[in-house]
Design a protein around this nucleic acid. Sequence first.
DNA 1: AACGATTGGTTAATCGATGTACCTCGTGAG
DNA 2: CTCACGAGGTACATCGATTAACCAATCGTT
Lengths: 347, 347
Amino acid sequence: MSAAAERAGRRPTIKAVATAAGVSTAAVSQAFNHKGRLSEATRRRILDAAADLGWSPSAPAAALRHARTRTLALVVRRPTDVLGADPHFSELITGIEGELAPRGYGLLLHLVTGMREENALYERLAAEGRVDGAVLTDARDDDARPALLARLGLPAVLLGSPDGRAVVPRVGLGDQGAGVAEAVTHLLDLGHRRIAYIAGPPELQHTRLRRGAFEKALRAAGLRPFAVLHTDFSERMAVGATEALLAAPGRPTALVYANDSMAVCGIGTVQRAGHHVPRDVSVVGYDNLPLGSWLHPRLTTVDQRVQQVGAAAARLLLGLCGEEVEDLPLTGRPKLVVRESTGPAPN
Amino acid sequence: MSAAAERAGRRPTIKAVATAAGVSTAAVSQAFNHKGRLSEATRRRILDAAADLGWSPSAPAAALRHARTRTLALVVRRPTDVLGADPHFSELITGIEGELAPRGYGLLLHLVTGMREENALYERLAAEGRVDGAVLTDARDDDARPALLARLGLPAVLLGSPDGRAVVPRVGLGDQGAGVAEAVTHLLDLGHRRIAYIAGPPELQHTRLRRGAFEKALRAAGLRPFAVLHTDFSERMAVGATEALLAAPGRPTALVYANDSMAVCGIGTVQRAGHHVPRDVSVVGYDNLPLGSWLHPRLTTVDQRVQQVGAAAARLLLGLCGEEVEDLPLTGRPKLVVRESTGPAPN
DNA sequence: AACGATTGGTTAATCGATGTACCTCGTGAG
DNA sequence: CTCACGAGGTACATCGATTAACCAATCGTT
């Protein structure tokens, strides 16, 4: 950074750069945006002056002019007391941010506790022109957000299985049923017959999808679920559901959880109850979070490449915002990762 | 939302509100900012018109005018391959966002992989005027960021122990040594004598603080560390360090980790090696992340109330940004939470 | 030599909100 | 009756960058 930059107590403006380079502010703008017609020499001189002053175009000013902020929103809705900050979102954020950063976009992160609050937030973000678009997670069966954002004129991408009558584009999470079905088949192959499912909140779309796939896979084998319990993803309910299942007459030999966080709680609860995983009870998760492979036993889970999904969503959304971005195709479907938390059924 | 709002294909501007209320744009602005002198009747009429149109002042326009964006930055630096998205940051973010949201502030989240990249990012964020301030995490012994942000004129708060010659304010993480010392005392009381420490990267300030406290506490008891191994917080190194310690002659009976994520990996590794926690080996973490209490055995750890630290940092930073906010005092110091991963030393 | 085309810029309007300086009433005092 | 004053608003410049429209040289052509 040069002496000039040091002297400028305040942030330099385009005017300072123009003066330093001996041109008009318009020329500076053109030099940066490859518009207009400037001689290569002038362009260089301007760029040098700008670099010397440490100047970059003011984001707010540019946003005002273009009505585009180069910022996208991610609102994480999380009922109070839900499993910490679900690591699932960390993965998702990593995937999203990886696509935004190289394109100069920023990610505005908000945490809310309820649907009503989430909708109000979108209203405000849109009204204030704070973001160019939003990534919507946890699709519900009757989700008001797509219509809301459409009305607000805010591009959006919804994470969930593709859907014909979608108001906003979706990034599929793949055929989630396939992953669950694969898990069930795996358990059946191991001899399990009493298999229970610990699901998420019933209003979430993926809950229904995965639960349906679970039941269907069992039916195909001429079996019925030992039980299907819904939770709100909280530790309390994950533990409670697990304890209830372990105490049930004819205790299940395998537990399938709707996500890895609950599965981890589940393993702990099973062990605490004095059972061995997987000798007495097998456990399967969903998401393939890094966490799962730290444990002993390592968690058998369904890999849905959350990071890649986040990246795909980000690219799609960037495209909707007018950026020249090629879609990131989501190759393959969720796939079972067999590790150590599943084993032959007892007896 | 009224019919008027529906008709407005595009986002309404202050002009639309002014027209609707039959006043000038200046009046609208004054009505919203409690400046100037408007009759209560007019004010009400304007506010109604605005609500009817679903108008809120444009954030970019306001930002341009005031040179304040009401957005703060959090840059998470994370060498590739580090333990997932360290849940520590999720907690921190939760704490920060909880303070920002009610004040209409937003949190701009960025992920970087190195120090150089992080500094470059601050330069850009400042030059573009994208944020009003930044929360700096993972203080280093010779941290260039405070000076950098000071030069850039960007308010900042550094997470770390208070320090006399600080360029930017700090939010103490409490006397970190106290927590570690307490952990060591706890282990000594349980009869442990061969205690090892698995530390973080040596360049981080808290690594030195905690390591120092660890060694000091042992020295006070006339002992020396069994070993102190540094890691980069990656799973690979956490596992590697643990395996090395278990294989060492005169294997340690207690392992103290610099954070919960590594401790979780550690427990898994110990168990995988055929040992029992805590019967054969005791394990202690640091952070008290929710994750720790899901496991079996539940993790004994040092609670440093990460969320509260985040909240305190946010408040302090908001104050530096000119908001009227009372500081959130950080009461108490990091405190040991004894759970199930520590027990009497073998023999 | 005169004219059109081209090169290399500049001028000025604009984005939306804000705030200072100013204006216009109505009223009460002198 | 006139003037000062306050209540209640309005006009306009401004924040920093962008861009359409415009202009001044310079060059090549016939």
